[in-house]
Nucleic acid binder design. Structure first.
Lengths: 141, 141
DNA sequence: TATACTAAGTTCAAAAAATCAACCTTGTTA
DNA sequence: TAACAAGGTTGATTTTTTGAACTTAGTATA
């Protein structure tokens, strides 16, 4: 049986879905447009076929990606993100920004397309209609 | 030797530091104030002592946490986040928000302290002095 | 004084997960 | 007809993680 975290915490529960080795990188491949098995295998230097195959099945069963047949015979699938898969984009961006500030060797940065300036993460409060700083993590319900 | 991702990508390189099982949750424990070995062991239901011990050493060697002796005899350490450890807060918040929107069982939400409203992640462009939507991830240098 | 208990680990065997290499099936191209 | 590619599967090996017992140093309790 798959080892999962048994903790009442969003982070632990989320990592139960995307925390296994390679999983987040696979989602990221799809996000960046590499959607077939062999494109992903090429993009993810070092992953083995069986693991990629297992992870794709698990991600599909978890509802983060969907597989659609683009050729019947032989069967060929294209993998796409569902809405919850796409929602991971903020997580990816947060990691890219962390890497930009903290990695020795940094490869990517996140810019505003129009003016080419690097952006920061902010927290927008819809009620106050502004970015805010004083945040709390609180229990839901 | 520790298995690492060999990919020219911030996300892969960041996961080489925080992507191992339990690692991110350990950092999160410290962020939420559980700073000693036994507090963390209690907070992280199911972790074994040796793994917690290994991970703390690795996080210290990676510069995300620092250990300070708060009792000489017997030696007792308190673990604290360094600046790069604290920088992970945006990653945690992004995951908490993803969980809020996508987990079946969600435990936590992120609110603006003053008005108690849930916040969203935004991207602030310092040049344009506003939140922006059209973002690109581009190579650095 | 002996006994139990806590913090903060270490050690080692067993179980689980990931890697590696080979193989398979269906179809296409030279 | 032979070679090649996509998209996997199978099984052995290696690496990681778990689990349980043990250690060391000090505190509190009877």
């Amino acid at each position: 049986m798959k080892a999962t975290y048994d903790l009442p915490c969003n982070i632990a529960q989320t990592l139960n879905i995307i925390g296994d080795r390679w999983t987040l990188l696979i989602v990221h491949e799809i996000l960046t447009g590499r959607k077939t098995f062999s494109e992903m295998k090429k993009g993810l230097n070092g992953i083995s076929s069986n693991l990629l195959s297992d992870r794709l099945k698990y991600l599909e069963s978890s509802g983060l990606i969907s597989a659609s047949l683009y050729s019947d015979h032989p069967p060929r699938y294209e993998y796409n993100l569902t809405e919850s898969g796409q929602d991971l984009e903020d997580v990816f961006n947060a990691i890219i920004l962390w890497g930009r500030a903290n990695l020795d060797k940094c490869y990517k940065k996140l810019i505003h397309e129009k003016c080419r300036t690097e952006v920061n993460i902010a927290y927008y409060c819809p009620h106050c209609d502004e970015n805010v700083d004083e945040l709390s993590v609180v229990e839901v319900d």
